[in-house]
Amino acid sequence: SEHYTFDGEEQAIRFMRDMEAKNLKYELQIHNGKYIIQVD
């Protein structure tokens, strides 16, 4: 699995939509205002 970190919500949402379009599962965590997305 890989981790991707985003500072902004818009970037994170765009990335998650992209993952959904590719049928990839992901998990979102928010730490200290950063959006951390783990992709299986």
Rank of each mutant, 00 (worst) to 15 (best):
N32V: 04
E2W: 15
H31W: 11
Q29G: 04
Q11R: 05
E27W: 12
Q38F: 15
E2I: 15
E27M: 12
S1C: 14
Y4H: 08
Q29K: 13
Q11I: 06
S1D: 08
L24Q: 08
T5G: 03
H3S: 13
A21I: 08
K22S: 07
D18Q: 12
V39M: 08
V39P: 03
L28S: 03
E2A: 13
I36A: 03
I36R: 04
I30A: 03
K25I: 07
R17M: 12
F15Q: 01
A12E: 00
K34G: 02
M19D: 01
Y35W: 14
D40S: 13
E2T: 14
S1P: 12
Q29T: 14
Q38Y: 15
N23D: 07
A21Q: 10
S1V: 13
K34P: 00
M19N: 03
N32I: 04
V39Q: 03
L24T: 06
K25D: 04
A12Y: 05
Y26Q: 00
N32S: 06
R17Y: 07
Q11P: 07
K34Y: 09
Q38I: 15
A12Q: 01
A12K: 01
I13H: 09
K22E: 06
F15K: 02
M16P: 00
Y35M: 02
H3M: 14
H3E: 11
N23S: 08
D18V: 10
G33R: 03
F6D: 00
E20G: 04
R17V: 06
N32R: 06
E20I: 08
H31K: 13
M19C: 15
I36F: 10
G33W: 02
A21T: 08
E10L: 07
E27N: 12
Y4L: 04
M16E: 01
N32K: 07
E2S: 13
T5Y: 12
R14S: 12
N32Q: 09
D18H: 10
Q29F: 14
K22L: 13
Q11K: 05
E20M: 08
R14Y: 05
V39K: 03
Y26D: 00
D7Q: 06
E10P: 05
E9I: 13
V39D: 01
E9Q: 08
E20D: 13
I13T: 09
L24K: 09
D7E: 10
I30L: 07
D7M: 08
E10R: 05
